[in-house]
Amino acid sequence: MRRRPGIGGLQNAATARDQYRLLGENVAKIRTDLMKEQLATFRSQLEEFARKHKNDIRKNPAFRSQFHEMCAKVGVDPLASNKGFWAELLGIGDFYYELGVQIVDICLATRPHNGGLINLQELCNVLRQRRKSDRGAVSEDDCLRAISKLKALGSGFEVISVGKKKLVRSVPTELNKDHNEILELAQAQGFVTVDEVERQFSWTSGRAIDALDTLLDEGLAMIDDGHRDGRRRYWFPCVSSIATSVADI
């Protein structure tokens, strides 16, 4: 643009700047208003939806999981706070807190037996048995959600994936790669032998024994010297369902 000298030129430039600013503010305001309006509509729609499908959300685990997915996509966490309209509307927060407490309970009760590592599927089964009289089913998805809320307590509840299975860890044991591989191998039969571990992973005998000893010390494994072939077997209660169904839970 050609430079225009003089007072008039400076004044013109200042007016132009002011006008641009005004226009900009206007556009921004219109946009914000629009957004606010959209959000309000969205919120009311979501509320409407939740109100309409309250019973489905409460009773049907599949529906509940889809509802959560939908909320997550639009950046709403119905569990973020127990206050507010979600809790009032759905009682959904309480549901997960209750679940969380029961999960902690089960993990503690089975800890002497499985060393604080429990198969997610098994955990769900025990949970369902316990809530038998209660209305509504509990899905694995619900368990995972409740566990993720427990993290807020800093209590070291964590879900780890070993092979195809998910295990819930309630002790602060750090499992390294070797341990995870052994757990994965054990899923086939519920147990492993030192020979099998060495053969499968081409480890030295020391490495296999070391890893197995650690698992034993952590209470995650049990030895079995009773088989005919005389080879010591290491059983893992956390991957075999028969063992976790301790009757006295």
Binding site: M222, I223, D224, D225, R233, W235
Partner: peptide, 9 residues
């Protein structure tokens, strides 16, 4: 569960 028949160390 077989390991219950072996005394655990």
């Amino acid at each position: 569960y077989p390991p219950y028949f072996t005394l655990q160390p």
